[in-house]
């Protein structure tokens, strides 16, 4: 079963048509990077995968079921919000601005969602949390408040928080764009490890080095459609479209920017 599949996804904000029929399938254990200029609809696309954005036309299939919809009698019907909330637990999301809950400690940030969802006993959650804090390399920050952490640390905690729900698919929306350059690598390292462990990942990024080293495929989005869909080396070295070439030229062509 394909874990994540976008089928003919359209979305407009007012008169502005942001997504104009996106088709994309992400296979199990696959890492797909989404590249594209700012404002091309990358975030909007990612947000349709967990129902934060409701497509006008088309649908997204997550682990077999349509996101936010139920298919019956030849039509899609909206599902109740509580069912959508349940669906969202299967997909983790990491935001550009981290969005940790500032009034909660690191520990409570991690435990909030699984507690609300009653996913596992207190001891099971505790050991899951400890394992994840180890995985992102911040076991000593368990009792820290988010504001006392650096951007890189906050983003690593945000990744751990998303993983607490044991999602089958992870979405990353420019996870390193808000970071100081010297903090980028620690976040990419965690993501790289996650990919190596077999997580299915859809990653919007401007880190071409990460795309080249980690992605199985690169999607180039512009004007609300997928213009290119290719292995990273082929896209980075020989983009097939004029816009793709322009984009890479703009970003500095070379995939030579190193990732850790």
């Amino acid at each position: 079963m394909t874990p994540l599949e976008f089928v003919n996804v359209h979305k407009s904000f007012g008169a502005h048509e942001v997504l104009r029929g996106v088709d994309l399938a992400v296979a199990e254990r696959e890492v797909v990077c989404v590249l594209g200029p700012s404002g091309s609809g990358k975030s909007t696309l990612l947000n349709t995968a967990n129902g934060l954005v409701d497509p006008d036309q088309g649908y997204v299939r997550l682990l077999g079921s349509v996101v936010g919809r139920r298919y019956a009698r030849g039509r899609l019907h909206r599902i109740p919000p509580s069912d959508l909330a349940r669906q969202r637990r299967d997909v983790g999301m990491v935001f550009q601005q981290f969005n940790l809950f500032p009034h909660l400690s690191v520990e409570d940030n991690l435990l909030l969602a699984p507690r609300m969802a009653k996913s596992g006993s207190a001891t099971a959650l505790r050991s899951r949390m400890e394992a994840l804090l180890d995985q992102v390399g911040l076991p000593e920050k368990r009792h820290a408040m988010p504001a006392t952490l650096s951007g890189g640390q906050q983003q690593r905690i945000a990744i751990a928080r998303a993983l607490m729900m044991q999602p089958k698919v992870m979405l990353f929306d420019e996870p390193t764009s808000a970071l100081d350059p010297e903090l980028v690598s620690e976040v990419l390292r965690v993501m790289k490890q996650l990919a190596a462990d077999g997580m299915t990942m859809l990653v919007v990024t401007h880190e071409l080095g990460f795309a080249r080293d980690v992605a199985d495929r690169v999607i180039f989005v512009d004007g609300g459609v997928v213009l290119e869909d290719a292995p990273p080396d082929r896209f980075l070295q020989a983009p097939q479209t004029e816009r793709g070439r322009a984009f890479l030229g703009h970003t500095g062509v070379s995939a030579s920017r190193t990732s850790p």
Binding site: L52, Q87, R88, R89, M93, F95, N99, F101, L112, M116
Partner: peptide, 23 residues
Amino acid sequence: VPEGQRRAASALGLTWWQTQRKV
């Protein structure tokens, strides 16, 4: 309260009421 807080809570599978109460 910034919009990102609500989005993060929703993305984690919190319901509307849980988001209001806890976040």
